[in-house]
């Protein structure tokens, strides 16, 4: 079994179990039809609706791997969405809208990264600043109202589709694959993990941890920019008050459900993306099942609790044992003989 599959196996199993559970309440859950040149079905909705959290989770995974956290991504989403809506209304065209949004996201990341890496402020405090102030900045751009636009090009990023697949889905899959390739095909992944586990030792080994930290927060801002673009394009308007509200918490949850430690170190972007899909499956599943809305949060909390307990360090070894049994244990024998010699 390839290592990647093995790493995300708990998340895949969780997702499969959740889908089975939702199917009990909503039998047509797995049905996908092709109509009007686009794929339609609850699963497609999940892949599309989960885009903002999935995008945020990509950047959040990297930040958390450095033993940081980025609470500002929701507010950054609002800023970037506002920038894109403003730019399109001001006639800068599609390229301008995307460009301004991405620049705003990178700037937000640079701000966070500088506070963390240069001034040494704890990440949770450093990013809290932008989390609180960011929405104000976004409101300043939209002048306090929902800044609507009518530009099919930009709206395409929210509601368009290519070969039947919704654009938001394509965006998060593409960005996820790109970032995963970037960190795994280069040495970035190793260096990020190293500073997350032991920043001091890594710095002594010659790693430029300051620049690397700033880059990671900028990556998070960049991902938040795309989440903001998708959210804004989706409703054809920038809602500074509500865009991305509390999504930073869902993004952190996605990373945690993806089995990544909040203490930094080893990370898997694929697992975080699956975590985001797990959260969205819960959200959409609740809506489809038709329970009264008073139950939404309770059901979500209960399911998240069950998932986290099953993945907890005290229960997870049971999964691992099953996986090891499949792999066989040639290493184990060698281990005992060599270590006995010490």
């Amino acid at each position: 079994m390839p290592r990647v599959i093995q790493r995300v196996l708990p998340q895949l199993l969780t997702l499969a179990a959740l889908m089975a559970l939702v199917s009990v309440f909503f039998p047509d859950f797995l049905e996908i039809t092709y109509s009007d040149g686009r794929l339609v079905g609850p699963v497609i909705d999940i892949l599309k609706r989960g885009a903002p959290v999935a995008l945020l989770a990509i950047g959040m995974t990297l930040v958390i791997a450095t033993r940081g956290i980025d609470l500002s991504v929701g507010a950054t989403m609002a800023i970037c969405g506002a920038c894109s809506a403003w730019a399109i209304s001001a006639g800068y065209g599609l390229a301008g809208a995307l460009g301004f949004a991405m620049l705003a996201g990178l700037a937000a990341g640079l701000w966070n990264g500088a506070l963390v890496a240069v001034f040494g402020i704890q990440p949770i405090v450093a990013t809290l600043i932008l989390m609180t102030a960011g929405r104000g900045v976004a409101q300043l751009i939209t002048e306090g109202r929902i800044l609507t636009f009518n530009h099919e090009g930009l709206a395409f990023f929210g509601s368009g589709d290519i070969l039947g697949v919704p654009m938001p889905t394509l965006i998060w899959v593409l960005l996820g694959v790109l970032v995963a390739l970037l960190v795994r095909r280069t040495a970035l992944g190793l260096l990020i993990e190293a500073i997350g586990i032991n920043r001091r030792a890594s710095t002594l080994a010659g790693i430029n941890s300051r620049v690397l930290l700033i880059a990671v927060y900028m990556a998070s801002g960049f991902c938040a920019a795309w989440a903001g673009i998708v959210a804004t394009a989706d409703i054809r308007g920038a809602d500074a008050n509500n865009s991305g509200l509390w999504l930073e918490l869902d993004a952190i949850l996605a990373v945690v459900i993806g089995g990544n430690s909040l203490l930094g170190g080893r990370f898997s972007i694929a697992a975080s993306l699956l975590g985001a899909m797990i959260i969205q499956t819960i959200d959409t599943g609740i809506l489809l099942a038709g329970f009264p809305s008073e139950f939404n949060l309770v059901i979500k909390a209960a399911l998240v609790l069950v998932i986290l307990v099953l993945q907890s360090p005290n229960l997870a070894p049971r999964f691992a044992r099953i996986a090891r049994r499949r792999r066989g244990t040639p290493a184990a024998g060698k281990l005992t003989t060599r270590e006995a010699g010490e």
Binding site: F26, D28, G41, P42, D45, R49, I146, A231, D234, I235, G237, D239, N242, S243, L245, D283, T284, L287, L288, G290, S293, N296
Partner: peptide
Amino acid sequence: QTGDFTRTGGKEVMESFLQA
């Protein structure tokens, strides 16, 4: 269902209504 008074919420919940 609740759409939290927001456009995004209204859109997402309406999509699920349409599916259902």
